[in-house]
């Protein structure tokens, strides 16, 4: 079920990436980011209701949820946050400079001179 959600999120992400609006593009990026995080999270297996807290008394650790992917996803979320904000700022700046939201206007750097 969750893997289908991954697929849906990727589909939505890619579709949004392929739109011409800058804003939609960023939403696409965030969907992709979420999809990837979810993928990482679920690919290591899921354990419900047993978070990885241990103390001296804990013995049977193998029943707890795997904390590793959690840590990885946490890192990835934070990195994704940084990236997302930066791209937001970049697109905003671009809009400020050029006054367009259309990605198809981004042709100048590829044109022959």
């Amino acid at each position: 079920m969750l893997s289908i959600l991954v697929g849906v999120l990727y589909t939505a992400g890619v579709y949004m990436l392929l739109r011409r609006s800058i804003l939609k593009f960023i939403i696409g990026i965030i969907f992709m980011s979420n999809a990837t995080n979810l993928l990482v999270f679920i690919s290591a297996g899921l354990v419900a209701g047993k978070p990885a807290f241990v103390n001296g008394a804990t013995t049977n650790v193998s029943q707890l949820a795997d904390p590793m992917p959690q840590a990885l996803v946490l890192t990835a979320i934070v990195i994704g946050l940084g990236m997302a904000v930066f791209i937001l700022a970049l697109k905003y700046k671009y809009f400020e400079v050029t006054g367009t939201d259309d990605l198809d206007q981004l042709k100048q750097t590829d044109s022959q001179k």
Binding site: T11, G13, L18
Partner: peptide, 18 residues
């Protein structure tokens, strides 16, 4: 066209996850 591409990609990712 974009939708088809997206779906192809998305399903691939789902299967990979599975």
């Amino acid at each position: 066209r974009d939708l088809i591409v997206s779906i192809i990609f998305g399903t691939a990712m789902t299967l990979v996850t599975l």
